[in-house]
Amino acid sequence: MITLKNIEKVYRTSSIETLALTNINLDIRAGEFISIMGPSGCGKSTLMNLMGLLDAPSQGSVEIGGQAVTHYRDKELAQLRNQKIGFIFQSFHLINDLSVLDNVEIPLLYRKGDATGASRRELARQALERVGLSNRIKHFPNQLSGGQKQRVAIARAIVGRPDIILADEPTGNLDSGMGNEIMAILQQLNTDGSTIVMVTHDESMAKKTHRLVRLFDGSMVGDSSIGQGALSMETGIGRVFPSEEQSTL
């Protein structure tokens, strides 16, 4: 579903060059739920931006659904993002002046060929129902709790029925109880067929995914199945995580 080959990302200014990612080779299969961990500044957000076609590698290639996209034009990348990828952010990124329903409908406004406003609103209602917020469609973001805002953000990410969901610290601004509820929603979406890549600092949340990729100083230092023990970034020694039953809504 997502393939990164020999990825290098360099940020340059007139006086300095910063190597953000180097020698990244990663293949994420359809239906996987991947977590990415590492210390601040290790390249997690840069890697997520490359997967989400928000940035381009300095070297190497990116494939989405078998399509090599490295040389796509901006308009082609935007269209592919809109059709294939849903984004969930730590800070929600909701528009306070719009209702919950209007916020969720936004991605559909940029889709060519999508029909009437009524059909878009029905899809938005269905997405909100999936995350348990059908009774909040007329509310505004400032009338919601943090967990409810994240549910709206998830509904917005899935309203276009993308194949891939990219979640950047989706539980980072939530308490543990609400974080577990959000993870249960993501697990259910994955069970329903979505491929999910999640950046997190929370080891307990990473344990709920299928596979853990660790980054350090822009390099991959671990890639292993959670059930078989994830690699310790510091020592490279396998650690066995206890198995956990998937939560449901």
Rank of each mutant, 00 (worst) to 15 (best):
L174G: 06
T70G: 10
S35P: 04
T3Q: 15
T3V: 15
T235F: 07
M183I: 07
D102A: 15
K112G: 07
A78M: 09
L212T: 12
Q67H: 15
L212R: 11
L94Q: 14
G86I: 13
S14I: 02
G227K: 09
E63Y: 13
L80F: 11
S204F: 13
D175F: 09
S243D: 13
T195K: 05
H71T: 11
I226D: 07
D97Q: 11
I182N: 02
V104M: 02
G222Q: 06
R125K: 14
M198T: 13
T116H: 10
R211M: 05
A124N: 02
F89L: 05
E244C: 09
R121V: 03
L133R: 09
R12L: 11
S99M: 03
Y110E: 05
N82Q: 10
K5P: 00
D74W: 00
V62D: 03
A30L: 10
F92D: 14
V104K: 01
I237M: 12
A127N: 01
H210Q: 09
A206K: 02
Q126A: 15
Q188T: 12
E8Y: 15
T171K: 01
I182L: 09
S14R: 14
F241L: 14
N25F: 03
P170Q: 02
M205R: 03
V213W: 12
G41H: 04
N142R: 08
L50E: 10
Q187I: 04
Q67Y: 14
A127T: 00
A78P: 09
R136F: 12
K112H: 11
N82G: 13
I196N: 02
E8Q: 12
R81K: 06
A155C: 07
G238P: 06
S145E: 08
R73F: 03
P39S: 10
S204K: 13
H139T: 03
K5T: 12
V159Y: 00
T209I: 06
V159G: 00
F33C: 03
L50D: 09
L54E: 14
E76W: 00
Q150Y: 07
S224E: 13
I34L: 15
S194I: 06
V100C: 07
T70C: 08
L94K: 08
L77Q: 12
G31L: 13
D217W: 02
E244D: 10
A124H: 00
S145T: 11
S247G: 12
S219R: 15
P170W: 06
K208C: 09
K9G: 05
G229C: 11
E105V: 04
N6D: 14
L189Q: 05
L123P: 00
M51S: 05
N23G: 07
L53K: 04
K112F: 00
E32A: 05
Q188E: 15
V199S: 06
E8T: 14
A167I: 02
N23S: 14
L108N: 07
I106S: 00
A118D: 15
S194L: 11
K84P: 01
K112P: 00
M178F: 03
E17Q: 14
E234K: 12
